[in-house]
Computed example of a mutant assay.
Amino acid sequence: MIKVENGVCEIKTSEGVPGMMTGLSIAVRSVKRILMEGCDHSETEAKKVIDRAVELGLATDEEVTQEAMAAMGKVMMLLKNPPL
């Protein structure tokens, strides 16, 4: 079982690594399906979103902080100079 709440991930499995990988695979397939059916993403777009999530999941804390700061900078620029 994989449970995420308030930014904390809890993983419970009695099957070790194979069980954990199965749970992760099922979760990824579910996210892909939701992106495609519920958010009207193409399969390619859904895979890009998932790939990005995996990149961030494998990133160091410093890399995640840098990514967040870059995103905040973009938001600030849009707030200062809204598109017409």
Rank of each mutant, 00 (worst) to 15 (best):
K74H: 07
A70M: 06
E67R: 01
M76A: 06
D61C: 02
R33H: 10
G16H: 10
G38E: 15
E10V: 15
V17M: 15
A59C: 04
M1F: 11
D40P: 00
I11D: 13
V28D: 02
A27T: 12
V49H: 03
M21N: 09
L58W: 02
N6G: 08
E37D: 14
K74M: 07
M76Q: 07
I34C: 07
V28H: 07
D51G: 04
I34S: 15
I2N: 11
I50T: 03
E45S: 13
M36S: 10
G16D: 13
M36H: 03
V8N: 09
S30E: 14
C9T: 14
S30V: 05
V64Q: 10
E45K: 11
E5F: 10
V54F: 12
L58T: 11
E55A: 04
K3Q: 13
A53M: 14
I11F: 09
K47N: 14
K48R: 13
V54N: 07
A27W: 08
H41G: 01
M36L: 04
E15V: 02
E5I: 03
C39V: 06
T13L: 08
M72Q: 06
A70Q: 10
M36E: 15
I50M: 06
M72I: 06
M36G: 03
L58P: 00
T22H: 11
V75I: 11
P83E: 07
C39I: 00
D51C: 04
T60R: 00
T13Y: 11
P83A: 12
K48I: 08
V75A: 02
A59L: 03
K3C: 12
A71F: 03
N6T: 03
G38A: 09
G19F: 04
L35R: 01
I11T: 12
M36A: 08
E62Y: 04
G73A: 08
G23F: 07
G23H: 13
V54P: 00
E10F: 11
I2S: 03
V28K: 03
R52V: 00
D40M: 05
I2Y: 14
A71I: 00
E62T: 07
I26R: 12
T60C: 01
D61R: 08
P82W: 00
A46Q: 08
K80F: 02
L56E: 10
E37R: 12
C9R: 09
V49M: 07
V54E: 07
N81A: 07
A53F: 01
L58F: 06
R33S: 12
L35Y: 08
C9I: 13
V54I: 15
V8T: 14
I11H: 08
K32Y: 03
I2W: 12
A27C: 13
S30Q: 15
L78S: 05
S30G: 11
K74C: 02
I2C: 09
E10M: 09
N6W: 02
E62W: 02
V64K: 13
A53C: 12
L56N: 06
V4M: 13
Q66G: 08
T65R: 15
I2H: 14
G7N: 02
M77W: 00
A70I: 03
L35Q: 04
N81C: 05
E45Q: 15
A53N: 01
M72G: 04
L58I: 02
L58D: 09
